[in-house]
Nucleic acid binder design. Structure first.
Length: 703
DNA sequence: TTAGGGTTAG
């Protein structure tokens, strides 16, 4: 049998733009359902096989039983019929089917499926459309592949022939339970497809990130129907967001305007999401402002757009606007807010949002709680993070990762490793982020042997190939042990081209071990690398040029950065006090309390000097000059800490954020400030998390 | 008539 899709070859991005099938203003969007209801696809003029035939959902020993004629449902309750053969067989199944449907209506999906399973084992009972519909709902809600196979197996054995509605429901069940291969088979072999069938399979493809295939089907659908439904439009806008193809998204947007469907709430939300994901937040805001009635999802989309591109303050401000507008906030809103608060280090806003989450009835949501675990652990409250984690009714890999990273960031590497082992015992599957979290924890806590064993187990036991970040962690671990030759060998033995971060880690290890020769070698490798497309990579190289006195190269690099539109933000640190964020720049004399802040820094430096602090950076590369030494005393983080000490209560931890990497000198200074003031200080810099307490830091004296 | 679509976490 030739599948209808076979005549369409693989699609490319250019084809999406230029294909004659792609929407233009000459097409119309088909709004009315009746036009399509009953529309029948009969490819090649012949009706295709039963869609269930290709699904292998029956155990081998059970085999396919011969189809029995579909029984007429017995709806009588006449007591006189109780004694007949027919009612003796059917009556129990009707009652039980009704019970299954009632359980599903009460959201007791697991019990409904358990009851169905018991009867399925016993065999010999009939199920009608409404019961199958309820079972499909239960499978969708539980996402259980096993349940899907059980229900489909029963349909086949029972000789059930689904109508258009039920075919679509079964298709949706496979899509929602992640059985996309089976779903695709079902779709390709469906005797009849309507808009819902097409939308269901396209939505599944978009969901798993197969955007090109989604576009391919969309074009076939467009050609077959000479148009598409409004909902398909929303899906394809989401697909263009996934591909980050703003030009395709704009094409669909202009098409939507010409067809007069741009005011549809789903299209609008998809557009806000698309512009936000493609980095055009102004366009996203424009669409959002134009929304006649702003829905929860609309607000969520615009907040996500701001948050995605680092406009955390604007995102938070939109959150409060949303609250004031009276629109109901949902678990999506709260999940984003916790993530935003963790970036802003905003405990007060997060506390309010946590209370709002509990009040809203989404207190058990897995995503919102995972974001909360991450927030508390980043804010230095690992016990609170553990408490939230313990109360979660179900956890996934991301939840475990958040807590493992939290322990690691607090310098509690042994507990992070214990948690990782517990995760494995509970049969939760680790992913590459889990290994990154646990290897970072080993690196912070100098657990070399443990880290090495876990690194080895990645590919050996878990079939996960180590990525450059995992290699970077191992280079740091080897460097801390003074095993520089082994670190170099690891880089050379990597199955991919060493990255900037790997060479930078070796350079740091060389600095720590004062191995000038290897340090120069690593630095030369960095100089020679061409693929510096990210701002942070340019910044690493720029610092190396500056520190090694290669000022000409540094100037050339700055020119290149300007040409590429990469702007270096001014170096700053910030702290939240009394719900307000205070930003500090190095040698910043424009603020209120300026004199007090500088006096506080001076007194702190005097105090910590008694504990061995030297206001000079230790490096084997050329030292900074005298003027820079003076500046070093008033680096932005020191000013932020002084402000925090002046304006917060004794005992509360100080949370400092900075947009750059903390320098060695400030790192040593803050360790001693934490010691003499008996305050916990949490600093999140551009690359790491530093938890200062009692004269030590969680990062394991990285510098 | 039903059913399908848009937003979130490490």
């Amino acid at each position: 049998m030739e599948l209808p899709l076979a005549r369409y070859q693989c699609i490319s991005l250019d084809q999406i733009h230029t294909s004659s099938s792609f929407p233009s203003s000459n097409h119309k969007v088909l709004r009315t359902k009746p036009f399509f209801s009953g529309y029948c696809f009969r490819f090649g003029g012949r009706k295709l096989n039963n869609p269930f035939d290709k699904i292998k959902c029956v155990s081998p020993e059970q085999g396919l039983q011969p189809r029995r004629p579909k029984p007429k449902p017995s709806r009588t309750s006449d007591p006189e019929l109780k004694g007949t053969e027919e009612t003796r067989v059917k009556k129990p199944s009707v009652g039980i089917c009704s019970q299954i449907e009632k359980l599903v209506l009460c959201n007791r999906y697991r019990e409904a499926l358990e009851l169905f399973e018991i009867l399925e084992i016993e065999g010999g009972f009939d199920v009608g459309l409404s019961t199958y519909d309820a079972l499909v709902s239960a499978c969708i809600r539980l996402g259980s592949v096993r349940a899907v196979k059980m229900v489909c197996g029963h349909m086949i054995n029972n000789g059930f022939e689904p109508d258009q509605y039920m075919s679509n429901r079964v298709l949706l069940m496979h899509v929602k339970c992640g059985m996309m291969i089976d779903a695709r088979k079902l779709f390709d072999e469906m005797p009849e497809r309507n808009f819902v069938s097409w939308n269901t399979i396209i939505a599944g493809l978009v969901h798993i990130g197969d955007y090109l295939e989604a576009f391919r089907l969309f074009m076939i659908m467009w050609e077959e129907f000479s148009g598409c439904g409004i909902r398909t439009f929303a899906l394809m806008i989401t697909a263009s967001a996934g591909l980050e193809l703003i030009s395709v998204g704009r094409q669909l947007h202009s098409c939507a305007v010409k067809m007069g469907v741009n005011d549809d709430v789903f299209v609008t939300c998809a557009l806000i999401n698309m512009y936000g994901k493609c980095g055009s937040i102004e366009d996203a805001r424009w669409v959002f402002d134009d929304m006649p009635q702003k829905t929860t999802v609309g607000w969520n989309c615009i907040i996500a757009g701001y948050a995605l591109h680092g406009y955390s303050e604007e995102a938070l401000s939109m959150f409060y606007e949303m609250r004031d507008s009276g629109v109901k906030m949902d678990h999506f809103t709260f999940s984003m807010i916790f993530s935003i608060c963790s970036r802003l280090a905003s405990i007060e806003h997060a506390k309010q949002a946590h209370a709002g989450l509990v009040r809203s009835g989404f207190g058990l949501d897995i995503v919102a709680n995972t974001a909360l675990v991450d927030f508390y652990s980043k804010w230095g409250r690992i016990e609170d993070a553990q408490r939230v984690f313990d109360r979660m009714p179900c956890k996934n890999t991301i939840s475990w990762n958040a807590l493992i990273a939290g322990y690691g960031n607090h310098g509690r590497g042994a507990e992070a490793v214990d948690l990782f082992e517990q995760m494995l015992k509970e049969r939760m599957r680790p992913d590459h982020v889990t290994f990154l979290a646990v290897l970072s924890a080993c690196s912070y806590s100098r657990l070399f042997e443990c880290g090495w064993e876990i690194f080895q187990s990645m590919s050996r036991d878990h079939k996960i190939k180590p990525r450059s970040m995992h290699y970077t962690c191992m280079i740091e671990l080897l460097g801390q042990e003074g095993l520089l030759d082994e670190a170099l060998a690891l880089i050379r033995g990597a199955p991919f081209k060493p990255t900037v971060n790997m060479w930078a880690a070796l350079l740091t290890a060389s600095r720590v071990n004062e191995n000038l020769e290897l340090g120069k070698f690593a630095a030369e490798k960095l100089y020679g690398m061409k693929e510096h497309k990210k701002l942070c990579n340019y910044a690493v190289l720029l610092n190396i040029y500056k520190r090694s006195g290669k000022l000409k190269e540094a100037a050339t690099l700055l020119q290149t950065m300007e040409r590429k539109g990469l702007i270096m933000l001014p170096v700053c640190s910030w702290i939240e006090v009394n719900k307000k964020t205070h930003v500090f720049y190095t040698v910043d004399k424009r603020r209120i309390q300026t004199n007090e802040i500088y006096q506080k820094v001076d007194s702190l430096i005097l105090e910590i000097s008694k504990h061995g602090y030297v206001p000079k950076e230790k490096t084997f590369l050329p030292d900074v000059d005298e003027q820079e030494q003076h500046v070093l005393l008033y680096h932005s983080e020191k000013l932020a800490i002084a402000f925090g000490l002046l304006n917060t209560m004794n005992g509360s931890p100080l949370q400092i954020m900075q947009n750059h990497r903390i320098c060695n000198n400030c790192h040593n200074a803050i360790k001693l400030i934490a010691l003499v003031t008996r305050r916990e200080i949490v600093v999140r810099d551009a690359s790491r998390f530093h938890y200062f307490k009692d004269g030590s830091c969680s990062c394991g004296d990285y510098w």
